[in-house]
Design a binder for these strands. Structure first.
Lengths: 359, 359
DNA sequence: CTGTTAGCGCCTTCAG
DNA sequence: CTGAAGGCGCTAACAG
């Protein structure tokens, strides 16, 4: 059996209270009693049970992150990694642990139900969601990241519509006509009802505005919106599917991905097909993950401060916990034009020979 | 106030037991009572408190990962990310959450004390450690990753000595004389007493053996062992410090890093100094992180299965929890020779002009 | 300065 | 099929 506070009390000939004080509020008892108690604590190897402690104090020393996908998928996306790292910064400051809560057998709500944490962060959960409801019932302070701001719920994100607009305008300015959009669709997420859908909608709206400005439309035949998983593999698959079907003359000249992680896959797909970037294909992404600038050519993308998002969201959730009034946050995002986007080649596509690669 | 099981019982005119059964063991009570109770549960928005539940059941639905560094630093290392992803796979299978426990204000032991989890994984914690002792006192099943195998403690890792030996032999075979070793030293970790130190020692021993085989020694003047943080920035700093001091003729011709993350920094440092890899400088790493093969030139390294390490370690910890007897695991590692290592240039170093870079 | 006494919210034998 | 009662391990008023 594990040694409990009662064992220490008995052995030391004092009450549980005294033992508790010796550990948590040493000043309040006499030095000798304290020393004797602590000696016995050490001798018997007593460690207070964190769960029992949490039950009485109402504090867990942890903040939770509700993930829309399994952990291994989530961390495969460097952007999500950045968010988690940001949360980690706040945890470090406050001496807290971070509990990652993936859907339990597909059910995000179940994860929300089980969360034993002081405050919670969610990814892409909007107001009115089942999850949001539940958290409110539980009186668990929470902040959404990349969800949707609303009166009864605080959100941290960027202006997705504007960012998407800017990105698409850049592509259109270059003269691209046939464009493939790799969209983070709810269908491909673990939690269909909520995951990323709002963000995706907003970005599509932004793209749409850019098209409209030139008298074009998102649902024109030369524009393809392809659902994609937010991962390298997902991006590769989607791109291959997109490029391999149909004749080359009808092939898009630009791929715009809603996540750099997926853009990485587009690079890989193009390389394997002998399509050179940006000469034959422009590629743009979203997020500006660390590797984006190290790619060859470096990736044109929308920079958004993932780490800052995480850190600020966590700080807000903690403020909520402390009872402060907080409101949602819109962080700055910006277009970063690098080498992966260029004007489309005027003539028909000519696949250059694949460059020799080491190993 | 939050609604508790008592409120439901009162409102439904039944006992707490009945409510509990309605939720956890629906078969045991009559359909009508159950339906009535569940209706009230829904109506009042009752969600059982996970902590109270954990206290009575002794199950938390989470597994913990004790990190030697703050979360944001840990996840900056892609290799650690891989390990976490592997743990995530096992979590997914078992429907568990993952609690990352960084040192609390520098104290890893404090994190171990607080962990409210079913089982724990540690990074680089050896037997006889204060942390190992504590976990044993707590009767908390745990498995070390990259620690040190021992009778009373299960570990998952690779044969670090052998791997290091192989790597250094490759470098020596190429003809390198002046070599810098970027070592993950305990001094640069958050938890000096335990973090990575065993692994570092074993790898140094492996290097040493390779040198000894040629009648050379690790402590010869032309071999420099430089402590480094396991991050790109750490690697860059260490490399710059190494290359900027002293005259170029005495400069190393090869850099061997104990982590690819640090090797990335070595690339960056070389690029900024106009030193070309591998012509003027060979670089080798450890881990084979995903980006390693995408670098230019692709990185020569020791491949070790990070994700598998995490997944297996988690599975072992859970087996321990279930009372099964388990023993430690040595996974397969192998040298992967790519383009970043080559024979040293015979003549004196000639820094080529820096290649123009986009943006 | 220390002990007594209640709970925290839930699950779970044991009776009825 | 349901209820009563005890206990998980700890903290925190309140007395003494």
């Amino acid at each position: 059996m594990r040694v409990t506070i009662k064992d220490i009390a008995k052995r030391a000939g004092v009450s549980k209270t005294t033992v508790s004080f010796a550990l948590n509020d040493p000043e309040r008892i006499s030095a000798e009693t304290r020393d004797r108690v602590l000696a016995i604590v050490a001798e018997m190897g007593y460690v207070p049970d964190p769960v029992a402690r949490a039950l009485t104090t109402g504090r867990h020393g942890a903040i939770g992150l509700l993930l829309p996908q399994p952990i291994h998928e989530a961390l495969a996306n460097p952007y999500l990694c950045e968010i988690v790292r940001g949360i980690g910064e706040t945890c470090e400051e406050r001496g807290l642990a971070l509990t990652m809560l993936p859907p339990v057998r597909g059910a995000l709500i179940e994860a929300a139900r089980r969360a034993a944490v002081d405050a919670l962060l969610t990814i892409g959960v909007g107001p009115g969601t089942e999850v949001a409801e539940l958290l409110r019932k539980r009186h668990l302070p929470f902040v959404a990241i990349d969800g949707l701001a609303a009166d009864n719920m605080v959100n941290v994100g960027i202006d997705d519509e504007a960012a998407a607009y800017e990105l698409m305008r850049h592509i259109l300015d270059l003269g691209h006509e046939r464009i493939a959009i790799l969209a983070l669709m709810p269908e491909v997420c673990a939690a269909p009802a909520s995951c990323f859908s709002r963000v995706c909608e907003l970005r599509l709206a932004g793209f749409s505005r850019a098209f409209a400005e030139r008298g074009r439309a998102l649902d024109a035949p030369e524009i393809r919106v392809v659902p994609v998983e937010g991962s390298l593999e997902g991006g590769r698959r989607a791109t291959l599917a997109c490029l391999e079907s149909g004749d080359r003359a009808a092939m898009p000249t630009a791929i715009v991905a809603m996540a750099d992680a997926a853009a990485l896959g587009a690079y890989a797909a193009c390389r394997s097909l002998g399509i050179s970037v940006p000469a034959d294909m422009s590629i743009a992404g979203f997020d500006d993950i660390p590797q984006a600038s190290l790619l060859d050519p470096p990736l044109t993308t929308i920079r958004q401060p993932g780490s800052e998002k995480g850190a600020k969201a966590a700080a807000l959730a903690l403020a909520l916990l402390a009872g402060d009034a907080v409101s949602h946050l819109v962080l700055r995002a910006e277009l970063v034009v690098r080498g992966s986007t260029a004007a489309p080649r005027s003539g028909p596509l000519q696949a250059p020979p694949v460059a020799p690669r080491l190993q």
